[in-house]
Structures are given as structure tokens and as C-alpha cells.
Nucleic acid binder design. Structure first.
Lengths: 242, 242
DNA sequence: CGTCCTTTTGATCCGCGTCAAAGGGAGTGG
DNA sequence: CCACTCCCTTTGACGCGGATCAAAAGGACG
């Protein structure tokens, strides 16, 4: 299997052979963690960069009353905390949705990588900016769409993201999210999420059980959720992928 | 008056004299635009970087039914579109809330600036990451807080941001937002915003009329909105600000 | 077999959206 | 200088969607 980081960055902007090689042999120690573990806590100051190699994670912020808002998902190939180079402190926590394997990269290694490989630096910047664009789209989702469209929109996005890194066989993908977590993402209660999912199933748009999501009717799902993939900024000049 | 860009970046991370000087004499052409103008449209590919020198602007995304979600505010010193270097296309539009003066900076100038002045580059990265952190906090705001806290939270944030660039005399600041725009920001109708504002006034937390906001009780307002300024990442090692 | 978590279903209730209209202030034109 | 328009704010009434509460059902696991 290719390094998932290579696979991700290549999906954003072209890399050279040298870049691929350097990324492939990036010195890092790998560790495994269990589903439910908190990988990085709010306010923390990580000294290494965490690369998610396998599994799912999510970013979240806690409220004083114990509720929380999920503010992002990470899938294989995603870096958890490049920003701490600059910002020093986390402003949110990071937890695992599934058992996961994590690569730990020394800060200096990462800095060297960026300094000496401009195309990699550019791809990382790209990735950060896409994350930002995604947050804007989530804001639209929560702020202005009804529950039905909100959930449908999130499912579309996760499907496209998983497909972009080769983790969605056609229209099937693992989606290790409980309905509570879906709700914490789109600002709904689990009860409402459940009813929305049933409607999506009834309308033959999706199938979802045992953590496996199947997109039955992609155009229908996208239309239902006012989905426009532009915000994911998959590069036009990459041409057809692979 | 100091260049507002200098003032902003200095508030994030230390600059050298040289940096300040370069920023102060940054070649740009200035133009003025009227309140309500759309400065950059969705999907556009700007060829110059826009610097907001005076006035207010906002980022927004439109929905098919004509409604919109505001996804960010810009105040003097903010750059509107550095990301287009990398992403090429806007995924949202940018409009003016007030008459404004804009600095237009050539792409090459900007690239040179970043290449040759690492501290400036770092400050710009910082700024981007704070924008991202702000989006995450907005997500919490819309997703999980009640209308009262939502509006209060936004007012706190705008106050701190304006103060950070020297545009809030003590607890007074211009806030050229209609109640409709406040609603489009926090996912509420103007009617609800109006009722929330009345409650905030009744409880002696704020004053707001004729586009002037006064914070009467800062601790009270922050408590009401569960406000924690950490996400703004004002640098600790800057020490007491001027 | 019992415990725990997640999903599902049903019933109730109220907050906020919606609709409607009045009031106020600023700007414009006769 | 007044009349008119336009936009924003304010107020009131109503109805519904989604939160809340509660409990049952289904699986996974020890």
C-alpha cells in the first residue's frame, strides 16, 4: 500500500518523483491507538506532528455543559496538527472513531520537509486551505439548511473524500459514525438524525448499516443536499486521476 | 496612521524594523468602493490580492433559494484573498458593509514579500490559521449555542478583534451590521436577533444603536456567551501590547 | 446471560420561524 | 421644506419542526 500521505497530497497538486520518494521514506514512528481514545486534548502543545495512517478521527470542541460540537473529520493521510508549528496551542481536541495507526513525525523533520520541497509545501498549504473552505461549507450547512439536507450533505462530502484517497470502493465506504456523532456534527439531536436517515433510506438515496454507507443515488443525494463540490478544490489541472 | 496591515501582523507575532519598513512601503494601488458593493464574486479568479485598508467587508455563500450564510468578517488590515495563490478560485463571495478603501497588490509583489521576509510569511500563516480557528468556533456557536449566547458571542469577538487593531476606543466600536446580517451570520432570523438584542440591552450588557456598539459589562457578556478568547490565538510571547 | 451502547419509536411541548404590520430615520425629489 | 420612498427596527400572533423525555428493541461483548 502506498503511503496515505502521498496518496492524499497527490490528489491535490502534482508531485515529482523525488517528492514521492521523500514522503515515502519519511522518518516516523508508528503507534496504534484504540477507538474512543483522545489523541490530543484541547490546550495541548504537541511536540510531534501526528499523521493519521489508518482509521478515522475527529476534531471537537467541548461546551461547559458537557455537550460538544464536532468541527472536522480526519481520514487516512490527514495530518492532525501541522498548525501547532505556528500557533503552538490546540484550540480543540482530537479523538479516534476507530482503532487507528498514527505516524509521529518530529517537528524538525517536518520543517525540513517543507523547507526543501516546495511542491510538498504547496500541497500542505492547499490541504490547509481546503480544510478552511470545508469549515465555511459546514457553516452554511448548519446555519441555513434543514436537517434532511444537512445530513445528506455530510454524507456526500465523506463519500467524495474517501473516494479521493481510494477508500471508497465505488459507492460503498466505511462510515464509523454513530447517529449521536452525526448529530454533534450538524447541530441536531440523535433522534432527528435517525429520522432523517430513515427518510434517506426510504427514498432510496442511501443504505447505511453496520458502519457501511452505500450511496444508491448520488445525483439524488447531491440534489437533496444542495451539494456543490467546488469547495473541496480538487485540482482541475490534475486531469483524470491516476 | 500606521499601515493597518502592519498593525494587524504585529498583533500576531513580532516583526523586525525591516519587516515594518517593507510592509509600510508595499507597492499597491488604492481604490475606494461603496457600501453594498460585491468586491469579489464566488468562482472568481482574482489576479491581485485585495487588502482592506478602511471599512468593513464580509465573506458569504449564497443558497439556491436566495438566502445566504455569512462566513466571515474583515476589518482594516485583513487580506481578502491570499488563498487564491494556491486555490485559484474563490469558493465564496466578498462584499462591503461600508464604504471602503482597498489596496490592490500584485501577485508577484506578494510572492516576493513572502519569499524574502520569513517573519512576515509566518505572520500571514498565523493569520490564516486564526481564521480557521475562528470558523471552528463559529461552528460551535451556530451548532450548539442558543440564540442569546450566539449573538453575544459574536459581539464579544468583534469587540476583541476591533480592539486588537486599535479600532475600539475602550468599549465602543463601530458595528455596521444590520440585524438581518447578524442573523445571516449566526443562523437566526432578524426577528429573533432583534429580541435577543433587546434582552442584552435590558440586562445592561450592551448598548447598540446607530451602528455603534458599546460593551457595558464585558465579563457579563462573555459569561452569557461562554466566550473563551483562546481561539483567537493572540500571541502570549508578545507581552503587554503597547 | 447480563450489561452496555446504539438504534428506533412514540408522545409532548415550546422556541423560533413565519407572517404581518407599524414605527422610525435617512435620503431624495418636487 | 415637506412628501414620499426605502430600509431597518420593533412588535404581535400563530403554527410547526425539532428538542426533549421516555422506553423498547437490537447487537456486541464479556
Amino acid at each position: 500500500m502506498t503511503n496515505p500521505l502521498v496518496r492524499k497530497l497527490e490528489g491535490l497538486t502534482p508531485l515529482g518523483d523525488k517528492d514521492r520518494q521523500v514522503l515515502g521514506s519519511l522518518p516516523m514512528t508508528t503507534v496504534t491507538r484504540r477507538a474512543g481514545d483522545m489523541l490530543i486534548d484541547e490546550e495541548e502543545q504537541p511536540s510531534q506532528v501526528h499523521l493519521l495512517i489508518e482509521g478515522w478521527a475527529f476534531r471537537h470542541k467541548a461546551l461547559p455543559d458537557g455537550r460538544r460540537q464536532i468541527v472536522g473529520y480526519l481520514i487516512p493521510g490527514d495530518l492532525c496538527d501541522i498548525h501547532v508549528f505556528v500557533l503552538k496551542r490546540m484550540d480543540h481536541a482530537l479523538s479516534l472513531l476507530s482503532d487507528a495507526t498514527i505516524g509521529l513525525i518530529e517537528a524538525d523533520t517536518m520543517i525540513g520537509l517543507i523547507d526543501e520541497h516546495p511542491r510538498i509545501a504547496r500541497a500542505l498549504t492547499w490541504s490547509t486551505l481546503v480544510d478552511e473552505a470545508t469549515l465555511r461549507e459546514w457553516l452554511v450547512n448548519i446555519g441555513r439548511r434543514d436537517p434532511y439536507a444537512r445530513v445528506a450533505h455530510l454524507l456526500c462530502e465523506m463519500w467524495l473524500r474517501m473516494r479521493a484517497v481510494g477508500l471508497a470502493a465505488d459507492r460503498r465506504l466505511d462510515l464509523p459514525l454513530t447517529q449521536t456523532e452525526l448529530g454533534d456534527t450538524v447541530g441536531l439531536t440523535p433522534v432527528t438524525v435517525n429520522r432523517v436517515l430513515q427518510r434517506l433510506r426510504r427514498e432510496q438515496l442511501i443504505t447505511l448499516s453496520d458502519r457501511v454507507l452505500t450511496i444508491l443515488d448520488a445525483p439524488g443525494l447531491m440534489q437533496a443536499s444542495d451539494f456543490n463540490a467546488d469547495y473541496l478544490h480538487r485540482d482541475q489541472n490534475l486531469g483524470s486521476r491516476r
